[in-house]
Computed example of a mutant assay.
Amino acid sequence: MTGSIMQRVRQQVQAFEPGELLTYADLSTDPASFGAVAAALSRLSREGVLKRYAKGQYYRPTPSRFGALQPSAAAVLRTLTAAEGSVSAYPVGTALYNQLGLTTQVPAE
């Protein structure tokens, strides 16, 4: 049974875009197999398929010429502020202007 959970988690992880954060809630499994899902994510992290961003948060690294990239700030913001399908926060100020290419200033925070 553990092998089937591992295979199912691996398939669900491969469906996510590289650089997007995923949590236990993003994986469609029954609550009884929470421990097995956590163990499967840990194994995938050890294999290098996933990287751990924070406790209970993983991401598929985006390969680049300089090594694996961290998830984007937008992906982290979406994960942290999404409440029941609606985004409750968004970038403003210098960070937004920088993303739009209107300025080259880099925000301090």
Rank of each mutant, 00 (worst) to 15 (best):
G3R: 11
M6D: 15
Q7H: 12
R8Y: 10
V9C: 10
Q11G: 07
A15D: 11
F16A: 11
F16W: 15
P18L: 12
E20P: 00
L22E: 11
L27A: 03
S33R: 15
G35C: 01
G35V: 01
A39P: 01
A40P: 00
S42W: 13
S45L: 03
G48Q: 02
G48S: 06
V49E: 01
R52P: 04
Y53M: 04
K55F: 11
G56L: 05
Q57M: 10
Q57R: 12
Y58P: 04
Y58T: 03
R60F: 04
R60L: 10
P61Y: 10
S64M: 03
S64V: 05
F66D: 13
A68C: 04
Q70M: 13
S72T: 14
A73N: 13
V76D: 02
L77Y: 06
R78V: 14
T79Y: 04
L80M: 12
L80Q: 15
L80C: 07
T81L: 07
A82C: 13
A83H: 14
S86E: 02
Y90C: 07
Y90V: 02
P91S: 00
P91W: 00
T94N: 04
A95V: 08
T104M: 01
Q105P: 02
Q105T: 09
Q105A: 15
V106Q: 15
A108C: 02
A108E: 13
E109K: 05
E109S: 09
